[in-house]
């Protein structure tokens, strides 16, 4: 979540990384959980017993059991189906925001660190400005101006998300570009683009992957939180945060309704955190032993 805890450019061998991950039981469990969640998201239409948005007021707020394993919500919609379909939005947003922010930030950091000078100065001061605003305040400001909805939330998350990646990659590039192999590439007359992408970037990639993995739960939490406030995903679309928000109104009469969506957000965030922590430990030999953080 924070850039300070990741040590830049530790190179690794693929086999070594794999064995480090499989030895780390927590990360392994997290990985399996992520795969399960992806499976649920992909096959939600086949796994769900009912249509997640079809209303049937005659069957509102049914207790769990029988035809509706988790019961129904205040509109008579099947809760299990909605929870399963909810995985689609959350995971899609997580991967999309995490991936796009990582790619954008990576290239901005690469260019800033490699060319230096005025360009670097301008880009880094820009990151200062973005970091001068608490994330959620910026996201809320964007949603407040453009209007509530998933599209605007995702836009705000991407516009804000590249910053830590850019700073991380720039830091790595600054030290990498002085190394012999980069000088050799330059002496061979390779183009700047080729040196940046083919020679420098691969060495800076490890920490970016870690940060991206930890950025995914961050984005998922942000979207769920905004939907909970009624500003993100709008009903009747099945989304966990929005479902929790709807569950609030019948909290006294039917509290069970808010267990499943919250649990799903929790498990999803936990799964990605475990994988991210595991990757970080695997990439950083200093932490690999007993200093598990």
């Amino acid at each position: 979540m924070s850039e300070t805890v990741i040590t830049p450019h530790v190179s690794f061998h693929r086999g070594e990384l794999w064995s480090a991950i499989t030895r780390d039981r927590a990360a392994f469990a997290g990985g399996i959980l992520v795969i399960l969640l992806v499976f649920v998201a992909l096959f939600a239409p086949w796994l769900a017993p009912h249509d997640p948005v079809r209303q049937d007021l005659a069957r509102a707020l049914l207790p769990p059991g029988g035809e509706y394993p988790l019961g129904t919500d205040e509109m008579g919609r099947c809760l299990l189906s909605r929870v399963l379909f909810g995985a689609r939005i959350s995971l899609a947003v997580g991967f999309f925001v995490g991936g796009l922010a990582a790619i954008l930030g990576m290239f901005i950091g690469l260019v800033a660190g490699y060319y230096g000078g005025l360009l670097d100065e301008v880009l880094m001061r820009l990151t200062d400005i973005f970091m001068g605003l608490p994330n959620i305040v910026f996201v809320l400001a964007v949603v407040g101006v453009l209007g509530p909805g998933l599209k605007h939330t995702v836009l705000a998350l991407v516009v804000m998300g590249w910053v830590p990646f850019a700073r991380l990659v720039r830091g790595s590039v600054l030290s990498l570009k002085e190394r012999e192999f980069v000088q050799a590439a330059r002496a061979l007359g390779f183009s700047h683009w080729r040196i940046m992408v083919r020679h420098i970037l691969p060495h800076a990639l490890g920490p970016v992957v870690v940060l991206a993995t930890l950025h995914i739960p961050h984005a998922i939490l942000a979207v769920a939180g905004l939907s909970f406030l009624g500003l993100g995903v709008q009903p009747p679309t099945p989304e966990w945060g929005a479902m929790l928000n709807a569950a609030r109104s019948s909290m006294r009469t039917y509290p069970l309704q808010m267990v499943a969506p919250g649990l799903m957000v929790f498990l999803t965030v936990l799964a990605f955190n475990l994988v991210g922590n595991g990757l970080r430990d695997a990439l950083d030999p200093r932490r690999r032993s007993r200093f598990t953080f």
Binding site: M251, G262, V269, N273
Partner: peptide, 14 residues
Amino acid sequence: LIGVAMPNFWLGLL
């Protein structure tokens, strides 16, 4: 680990 992954809106409701 649980505390870090716990969404605060859910924790509050619980």
